[in-house]
């Protein structure tokens, strides 16, 4: 499919074009919903590592924590690019963004002020923002 494809269309080509477009849309949707799920999984893993593993163990690897925002950035770009940006989808995306930010702040506060690092409980607050992502992925998958 390109600019030169604007000529006559035979019937088999028309049928294959429809199939091709449907496959592309389907692939795009899988990338889209998959990216939202990935955002949840990455967030869950981040909090599990930062909270669940004792500080002394993770301290030498602190520099690797920069990978978290970098990964978030690329996943967010993937989500934006694969989105149909339909109005209903944009509404869910806005809820996802707002819910994710609030849940991240709450999870961060729990990690810093309430839970002791290196305990199982401290590994769990990531479930809050991850849960927002999984709920959004479910809602977006139905659209």
């Amino acid at each position: 499919m390109n600019n030169t494809a604007d000529g006559p269309l035979d019937h088999d080509a028309a049928a294959s074009r429809i199939t091709q477009v449907e496959n592309r849309v389907g692939r795009m949707k899988r990338i889209y919903v998959g990216s939202v799920v990935l955002l949840g999984v990455v967030t869950l893993a981040y909090f599990a590592v930062v909270g669940g593993i004792p500080r002394a163990v993770v301290k030498p690897y602190d520099a690797l924590l920069i990978l978290f925002p970098v990964t978030l950035f690329f996943v967010a770009v993937g989500i934006r690019r694969a989105s149909t940006s339909a109005r209903g989808v944009l509404r869910v995306e806005q809820w996802l963004l707002a819910g994710y930010i609030v849940a991240m702040v709450v999870a961060g506060a729990l990690e810093i002020f309430v839970l002791r690092q290196g305990t199982v409980a401290a590994a769990l607050p990531g479930a809050l923002p991850a849960g927002v992502c999984f709920a959004a992925a479910w809602a977006l998958g139905k659209k």
Binding site: V21, V25, G26, M28, S83, T84, S85, A86, R87, G88
Partner: peptide, 9 residues
């Protein structure tokens, strides 16, 4: 297939 989409998509 999508019911609604923006021009860019």
């Amino acid at each position: 297939t999508t019911s609604e989409a923006d021009f860019r998509y």
